[in-house]
Computed example of a mutant assay.
Amino acid sequence: MSDIMNGMAMLIAAFHKYSGKEGDKLTLSKGELKDLLQNELGDIFGKSTDKAKVDKIFKDLDANADGTVDFQEYVALVACLTVLCNDFFTEK
């Protein structure tokens, strides 16, 4: 597989590693999202246990306000973080 296809497979695998532990296997609950952020993106978000921060991130991601984060909402987060990282490393 190409590098991009490997990256896509890794994004999918990371989502499904956490989804469904507390309900629907196609969405992330607030607790599942917290675990994903801490374990997979801890270098960016830190190991914060601040409930208010997790609540804000969850609310911002839950674009359709259904109380869960679906795959599309999760990918939007990863895409935004990727853009921010790219901007940070390409600044002169």
Rank of each mutant, 00 (worst) to 15 (best):
87 D>I: 14
39 N>Y: 01
77 L>T: 04
70 D>C: 07
71 F>M: 03
14 A>V: 15
36 L>D: 03
2 S>I: 09
17 K>F: 04
58 F>Q: 02
64 N>M: 07
21 K>A: 14
86 N>C: 15
22 E>T: 05
9 A>C: 12
79 A>T: 15
35 D>A: 15
77 L>K: 02
28 L>K: 02
90 T>C: 06
31 G>V: 05
85 C>K: 09
48 S>V: 10
18 Y>P: 05
1 M>A: 13
43 D>P: 08
18 Y>K: 05
44 I>E: 00
57 I>T: 11
11 L>C: 14
57 I>H: 07
62 D>I: 13
40 E>T: 07
45 F>I: 13
38 Q>H: 09
38 Q>G: 12
59 K>V: 00
86 N>Y: 08
90 T>H: 04
10 M>W: 00
8 M>F: 10
37 L>Q: 02
65 A>R: 14
29 S>G: 13
79 A>E: 03
50 D>L: 06
55 D>Q: 10
87 D>L: 12
2 S>W: 00
82 T>K: 01
27 T>H: 03
1 M>Q: 08
26 L>E: 12
63 A>Y: 00
77 L>V: 06
28 L>P: 07
16 H>F: 10
35 D>R: 14
80 C>F: 07
53 K>G: 13
33 L>C: 10
66 D>W: 02
44 I>S: 01
19 S>M: 06
25 K>V: 12
37 L>H: 03
36 L>W: 03
15 F>Q: 03
77 L>F: 08
60 D>A: 11
69 V>E: 00
3 D>K: 15
55 D>H: 06
15 F>S: 04
28 L>M: 09
83 V>M: 15
26 L>K: 09
59 K>S: 11
46 G>L: 06
34 K>L: 05
53 K>W: 01
22 E>F: 05
14 A>R: 11
71 F>P: 05
37 L>N: 04
40 E>C: 11
56 K>E: 13
35 D>F: 02
23 G>A: 09
45 F>T: 08
61 L>Q: 06
59 K>D: 07
44 I>P: 03
48 S>E: 10
29 S>T: 15
46 G>D: 04
80 C>A: 13
48 S>W: 02
13 A>W: 01
54 V>Y: 00
80 C>V: 04
27 T>Q: 04
39 N>C: 12
23 G>V: 05
70 D>Q: 02
6 N>T: 15
44 I>W: 00
91 E>R: 14
35 D>M: 12
46 G>P: 10
37 L>Y: 04
38 Q>V: 15
3 D>C: 10
51 K>I: 15
78 V>S: 11
58 F>R: 01
50 D>V: 15
28 L>G: 07
65 A>W: 00
79 A>D: 04
91 E>Q: 11
92 K>S: 13
61 L>R: 04
33 L>H: 03
60 D>R: 06
54 V>K: 00
38 Q>A: 13
29 S>P: 10
43 D>R: 08
5 M>L: 15
76 A>I: 12
63 A>W: 00
14 A>S: 14
47 K>V: 14
52 A>E: 10
11 L>T: 10
70 D>H: 01
81 L>V: 15
63 A>E: 11
31 G>M: 06
73 E>R: 08
5 M>S: 13
87 D>E: 14
15 F>M: 05
2 S>Q: 06
13 A>D: 12
37 L>W: 02
55 D>I: 03
4 I>L: 12
12 I>D: 04
51 K>H: 08
2 S>N: 13
77 L>N: 07
20 G>Q: 03
26 L>I: 08
41 L>M: 14
